[in-house]
Structures are given as C-alpha cells and as structure tokens.
C-alpha cells in the first residue's frame, strides 16, 4: 500500500491543483480514475497473497475496467461497494489512513458521477479538495499546539518506540534531538502553510513538490504516509 498511498495523496493533491488551474471536472475525474485504478490495483495484488480472494479479485478486475475507461460510472460505484465490504471485513481500515483516503476519493467520485449538473459535480469534487487541504492543516495544527511536538520530543518518541520505523537501525535517529527538532518544525510549518498554496499556481506547484518530498521521506522511514496514523495505530488522534 505504501506506493499506492503516496499516489492516492498525490492524486488528491493533483486534483486540487487541477481545479485551480482550469481543468474541467470531467477531465479531473478522468485523471483521478486512472491513477486511482493503479493505486487500488497495487493494494489488491498485495491483499491477494493474504486471502480474501473474492473481494480482491473483483477489485482488481474493476480497476482494470476503470483504467481502460470502460463502463462509465459503474466501476467507480463497484469499487465503492467493495471498499465498504472491506471496512466490514476488517472492522475498520486495513491499511489505516490509506484505505480511508481511498474511500473518501471513491465516495466523492461516486457522488460526482451521480450528479445531474456540472455544479453539483464540482461540489462533490470540491469536497475532496477541501478535505485534502484540511488533511494537512488540521494535522499541523494539532501538532503545533502540543508541547511535546514543540520541544521535538514527539518525533523522537516516534523513532524511539513507535511501531513505525521500518528497521531497528532507524531507531538510532532518536539520538539526534536537534535534527529531529528541526525536522518536526519543518513538517508542522509545511502542514500549517499548505492552504496558502491555493492562492497562487506557482505556490501550489511548490507545495506539491514539498508534499511529494514529505511523503517520500515518510515512506522511507516508516514505509507509510502520514495517513497510516489516521485511525487506530499507536500515534493516535
């Protein structure tokens, strides 16, 4: 899910950029469905090794259909239903925030396909854009008001004992408090300032570049995006 999760965040962010740079809703939806098909297919292939083959076989097939642009809205609705079935099967997200983001994107796309006028289509997709911006801003806000984050202690704890570092060697990063202090504040400032990127196309491109770097480093250290911590894992809301 890791590469896929980065892609999901990327496509949601790219979609936001698209809306602000004059894509029509239909064009934005076309690109989103193509990228989402790749992300979900990659997740589904990983799942197929672990069982639940009926769910993930069907999911993979729908991804192929959606990527080929066949069937209009039906593959999107089908993937939405399967995501709902997955929530039931695992009693919550399997891949943490990545699954949540997939469900959010599919819900907005499904509503956009149901919309009878361009206005409501854009409203459905705009909701996704708003959530994308909130995903950074709220996440930055709840950190910056926390004294542990202000002191850089929280990020040290992530490396010291959380379930996320992908190898034991990475835990030694906890022994570099100054570096983690700077990294922590860089992340917080980026997340808090992200909404301002919508004010100018150049700023948005720069912000998306920073976001790509942020998620890439998360993937390197924790084999996840920030979305993995969204619900039920140790670094909790």
């Amino acid at each position: 899910m890791n590469g896929a999760a980065v892609l999901e965040q990327g496509l949601a962010a790219g979609f936001t950029a698209g809306l602000t740079e004059g894509f029509t809703a239909g064009q934005a939806m076309g690109w989103m469905q193509l990228l989402l098909a790749f992300a979900i297919a990659q997740q589904s292939l990983e799942h197929l090794l672990r069982g639940d083959r009926a769910i993930f076989g069907a999911r993979l097939l729908l991804c192929l259909v959606m990527a080929l642009g066949i069937g209009g809205a039906w593959p999107v609705w089908g993937l939405w239903v399967i995501s709902l079935a997955m929530l039931w099967r695992y009693q919550g997200p399997y891949n943490g925030g990545s699954d949540k983001m997939t469900m959010l994107i599919l819900s907005c796309l499904s509503l956009a396909h149901l919309s009878t006028t361009p206005f409501w289509q854009e409203m459905a997709l705009s909701y996704l854009a708003v959530q994308l911006v909130l995903s950074y801003f709220v996440s930055g806000w709840i950190k910056v008001i926390n004294p542990e984050w202000q002191r850089g202690e929280a990020l040290r704890d992530v490396f010291r004992f959380s379930a996320y570092p992908v190898s034991e060697a990475l835990r030694s990063w906890a022994d570099h408090p100054r570096l983690l202090f700077v990294m922590g504040w860089t992340v917080m400032l980026f997340e808090l300032l992200f909404p301002l990127a919508l004010l100018h196309p150049v700023a948005l491109k720069l912000a998306l570049l920073c976001a790509a770097g942020f998620h890439f480093s998360n993937a390197c250290f924790f084999a996840s995006t920030g979305f993995s911590g969204s619900g039920s894992v140790p670094i909790r809301p």
Partner: peptide
C-alpha cells in the same frame, strides 16, 4: 470517519 475524517495524525505518541 472515512468521509468526515479527523486528520489528527501523530497528535500524541501513545504506548505502542
């Protein structure tokens, strides 16, 4: 929670 997310990533580091 998937369509009205809290987005509170990494608020505190709880026991792991």
């Amino acid at each position: 929670p998937t369509v009205i997310p809290s987005w509170r990533f990494f608020q505190t580091v709880a026991p792991s």
